[in-house]
Design a protein around this nucleic acid. Sequence first.
DNA 1: CATCCGACG
DNA 2: CGTCAGATG
Lengths: 254, 254
Amino acid sequence: MKIFSYNLNGIRAAMRKGLVDWLKEANPDVLLIQETKAQPEQIEQEEFEALGYHCYWHSAEKKGYSGVGILSKLKPDHIEVGCGIDYIDQEGRILRADFGDLSIMSVYVPSGSSGDARQDLKMKFLGDFQQYIRDLLKEKPQLIIGGDFNICHTEIDIHNPKSNKDTSGFLPEERAWLSEFLEEGLIDSFRQFHEGELDRYSWWSYRANARANNKGWRIDYQMAGEALKERLSGAEIWPDAMHSDHCPVSVDID
Amino acid sequence: MKIFSYNLNGIRAAMRKGLVDWLKEANPDVLLIQETKAQPEQIEQEEFEALGYHCYWHSAEKKGYSGVGILSKLKPDHIEVGCGIDYIDQEGRILRADFGDLSIMSVYVPSGSSGDARQDLKMKFLGDFQQYIRDLLKEKPQLIIGGDFNICHTEIDIHNPKSNKDTSGFLPEERAWLSEFLEEGLIDSFRQFHEGELDRYSWWSYRANARANNKGWRIDYQMAGEALKERLSGAEIWPDAMHSDHCPVSVDID
DNA sequence: CATCCGACG
DNA sequence: CGTCAGATG
């Protein structure tokens, strides 16, 4: 089973850039989407349905902002929209599809880059999300959490750790949170298969030709519950897909 | 002397579409511009200066809105910014360049299409503008007024007079105003040289492929003071220039 | 330096 | 159906 996660930075813009052709080629069983920046009725989901996908969306209340989605070839037994915490669910950041024991979540962690208020909210989100996942893992240990965590974990996950040590997304407290989060019983699947590999990023600023120079950050992850450890058969980052300032990240499970 | 008038619907967008190449080719002595939608400092006027133009702007207070300009190869003796009526000058709608006895004005008449309040303001503008021009003609009878009047004068100036009889821009009171305005002692220079010609328009809606089907309106004019009558040597509309929803209109004076 | 909105036309 | 601004990232 091939699961991709992709922050599209606007699903409508991404579709104009050929997302559907890419999807047909990549042909994942499940695509986790972040930053749809659209209400469901604004998304031409027939294009995905024509490829055999069932489509599920959780949009922010604010138009053009945030929003997650899940496309799945198999029809899920259950879709869980949001996490029941109002300030999170208003912003359309969490969506989950359950397939028997296997549970697959799309998450979009808030960015803190626009100022203190949003950084504070990001840290609050991280605390609440960690608690939510701790509880969920008890019920659904075979959990995949794919998405944009808006955090680089280690120095090899960012092109310039020195100059970014005070930048939201690479702050010590954010990196520490990600370590703690994994200790809840999750595996960073990319690192499972690519330990120590350098220059592997999933996001590049649009500014200053950052992507052409691979001056990026790895902030998109496929986290797998440890119960899935033996079923993980691969994980990848796909920097050649050019529909967004992010690229897709994938995990394979047997 | 070749004078063009062109509502650019955003001078920055028009420049991205090759306005400067067009200008080099058309090579007018004076270009009257409407809807710059920019503050002077946002306009790359060096590109015009490189072609030998002096540049003058009158922008609206509101950013990205309205705004007129004049480019001139000859340096004017005087530039008159606005008309001294505050509600008009706040919106950057009138700019004049004087060259000895010859006076050339760029005008952008308000649109009434967004609702009653703006239609009311348009009618008020028309009254105030008529009075302003009546007075100005006494002082400067050799006056050219080029610009977007946002009014079609007669049934041959619009592709569908019947269905537009209640549409702002072709209302009976607007058409009557334009007749009265000409009676102040002005000549619609295009009609001087193209009496009765059909399907000659200067604006097309972006909707429904209107331009490809030439379903347009003639709302851009080069009005000439009757004192200039004997000096008028031609007038044209240039629908092949594609930098805006309007096209340029020109007048030649000896 | 992109995406999207909403105002305006 | 475009342009522009402003919010957001």
